[in-house]
Design a protein around this nucleic acid. Structure first.
Lengths: 160, 160
DNA sequence: TCAGGTTGCTTCATTTATCGAAACTTTCAT
DNA sequence: ATGAAAGTTTCGATAAATGAAGCAACCTGA
């Protein structure tokens, strides 16, 4: 009678295992990240937005990446602006659009968050360095695929 | 000047890549699952609860697995009971606790959800069967580690 | 150049989800 | 017995996500 949660996965096909495992891993990672004290009070969606902002991005693109509605992203961006972590500016290429970009404070915070995220991954998964590299390689492949054909309304991937 | 989202990952260490990739993958998977028509109206947390219920489980254990408060799980379980998908019964081993278990309808629904989840994984990631197996193996390892020492207040993993 | 349609974003009211403190019941230790 | 602790629930408050409506910039074709 092995009803230990860790054994539950073994009953499933690999693709289902992958799904359930990723769900749990994601939940655990974001819980851990949420506990990190960064000196500023940040909600979960605010952190997600910061992480997704290595370079200035349009609100609509952010909404697609975060799988959220534009109106949701608007609210989160407002909060980040109020905290002095991000600024909005018109997109010179299309003045309907707004570009959201991190301030210096925001960038510094982002750096710290990513360092924390990396450490959390190593700690939570308990995987060896080689395993993490292998894992990352698979995730890169999946990410490329998702970003390539994942956005319903045809995200503009090329900005040249 | 390559600011394509798919390239963003390459700037980071593998552990950070893993974090960001898993976040995106999870978001994409749950978005996809949410779109599946199962004939019943189910909220996102309701679906999560069903997935985590291969066998009867105590409310508190569910709360820990879902990284939620007991009161949150109570509300979701109420909704599932109202829809005839789950039932509560006292835990014979400790009658303070409630065991939540799926009804026949709930179990059938769960089967369909898992099949959908597996198909979604294959479709969204675009990984080969071998890659998925490799990916699943890594996820199993991480899951075991998480469930082993991941629960703050000392989850009772052994029920014998 | 200007009319009509589309796109990108915001506003705001509403619904949904989560939280946290207090209460209730059962269990455990003494 | 009795008091302390554990497992849930209740309920009011906060936070987050939604969707419809609106505004401004763009684009097309005459």
């Amino acid at each position: 009678m092995t009803d230990r949660p860790a054994d539950e996965l073994l009953d499933f096909a690999p693709d289902v295992q992958l799904f359930m495992g990723v769900s749990l891993l994601y939940a655990r990672l974001s819980e851990r990240i949420a506990q990190v004290d960064l000196g500023v009070e940040l909600s979960k969606p605010e952190k997600h937005l910061i992480v997704r902002l290595p370079a200035p991005k349009r609100m609509g693109d952010l909404a697609r990446e975060l799988m959220a509605l534009p109106s949701t992203v608007t609210a989160v961006a407002d909060a980040l602006e109020a905290k002095g972590l991000a600024v909005r500016g018109r997109d010179p290429d299309d003045r309907r659009a707004w570009l959201l970009r991190l301030t210096d404070d925001g960038r510094a915070l982002r750096e710290r968050m990513l360092r924390e995220a990396g450490a959390t991954v190593r700690e939570v998964t308990g995987l060896s360095e080689q395993d993490i590299e292998q894992f990352a390689a698979l995730v890169r492949q999946a990410t490329a695929r998702i970003l390539e054909n994942g956005y319903p309304e045809g995200l503009k991937l090329c900005d040249t």
